[in-house]
Design a protein around this nucleic acid. Structure first.
Lengths: 227, 227
DNA sequence: TTGAGTAAAAAAATCGATTTTGTTGAGATG
DNA sequence: CATCTCAACAAAATCGATTTTTTTACTCAA
């Protein structure tokens, strides 16, 4: 789940890194907001050192900004940046998809099918949003997993997190969700039949649709409020 | 120069981040080596907290590995990974180059010319290796700077650092250096004439050449020694 | 009223010490 | 002789307190 630190459930800094990361992606903090370190310390029940280490990791990961001598703040959100993220994500995922189709064998197919099954299961309980989100993330991960490039997967993961930060601003939309879900199923079929061209086009559409949904909600939130 | 923390010359943690980052890229530590934190503390003349914060950032950046409850270690180096890095770097830089050519205007052209001039100047003093390295990095940065994608540039920078970690293992080779230098000049010309196709091919060659040089030295160092 | 200067308060960064965890090796046991 | 246990040690992670820097609040002069 975490990007960089081959995480450990035993370290306070890793624990707070994971939860803070999720909270940032879920939009629990306002864009541009300055983080009050001592408040976080109380909220997450950790000491200063592990908290600061987690904040440093998140800043290096791009989910926080660290400024000179005045702490950490949540990055502002701009329509422009969303477009950048979505466009690059499309390119990198299509690249990875192509390689995954070329390199993937039966183990990969099994993992994709399994992940898709879990995603459909999660679909049956629309109220458990976080479970669906996790299954969704894992499905897309499984789809590209066999691409063979550690670094490409790493960047895609990072972009996905950034993208979700925008996408999560949008309210749930059952109609859109239904379309996206159908696309997931089609992606699985195209993966099994190794139809690269069609799969790339579909993945492109898939991201484009989430993109336009997120785009609709991006202008609303203030881009630079301070606290 | 640094990737994530909009750096400040005033923070101990940022200072040690920068120097440690350079030392890692320059290969001052053996691949796979476990870092002795208290030794680093003495060597870099900082306290534990800023040092640990820097280590955490470097781990999130991918220049260190953090393991459970046993500190930090320098990532092992594998031929396989070098190929991954080089391949992805080629793709991303070609992508950025194309966009840069489309979007770049006179200010960009000026910056490219200026950076190239500084690189040629640095060439005149082969003994000042670090100056050349910096000028080289800045030249490539200037070439892609106008591509318009913050995230693409960020990933390229990260890959460049990873690539250099391998490339720096190779001993200086004046013959290769001469070819690479000529290519820099040609890239400038192609940038000014906006010859995208030729420039992409040349950039591909350029990276491929560094890649093969680095490749020659990658099998020698032990891939997983512990301390 | 505004603006520069300054002192008090708040926040961030850092330090030193403590706690926790992992590692090593001697001795006991099968 | 191999393996297991457990104490002693070393290292990492964390805590609490201190130092440094920024921000705020206030005074006084233009």
């Amino acid at each position: 789940m975490t990007a960089s630190p081959s995480a450990s459930r035993d370290m306070a800094s890793s624990r707070v890194f994971d939860t803070l990361k999720q909270d940032l992606i879920r939009g629990r903090f306002a864009a541009g907001e300055k983080l009050a370190i001592s408040a976080l310390k109380d909220h997450y029940q950790v000491g200063l050192s592990p908290l600061r280490e987690a904040l440093n990791r998140l800043a290096a990961y791009g989910l926080l900004e660290q400024v000179n001598q005045r702490g950490f703040r949540v990055p502002a959100m701009h329509l422009e940046e969303l477009d950048d993220i979505a466009g690059l994500r499309t390119q990198l995922e299509c690249m990875a998809l192509t390689q995954a189709f070329q390199a993937g064998y039966s183990e990969w197919e099994s993992q994709v099918l399994a992940a898709h099954h879990r995603l459909r299961r999660a679909d049956e309980h629309p109220e458990r949003v976080e479970e669906w989100e996790q299954a969704h993330l894992r499905f897309h991960r499984a789809l590209l997993a066999s691409c063979g490039s550690h670094w490409l997967l790493r960047f895609i993961e990072q972009l996905h997190d950034q993208f979700d930060r925008y996408r999560r601003l949008a309210p749930p939309n059952p109609a859109v969700r239904k379309v996206l879900d159908r696309q997931h199923g089609e992606l699985v079929e195209l993966a099994l039949s190794r139809d690269i061209r069609a799969a790339r086009a579909l993945l492109d559409d898939h991201i484009r649709m989430s993109h336009s949904v997120a785009r609709g909600c991006c202008e609303l939130p203030a881009s630079d409020d301070n606290t």
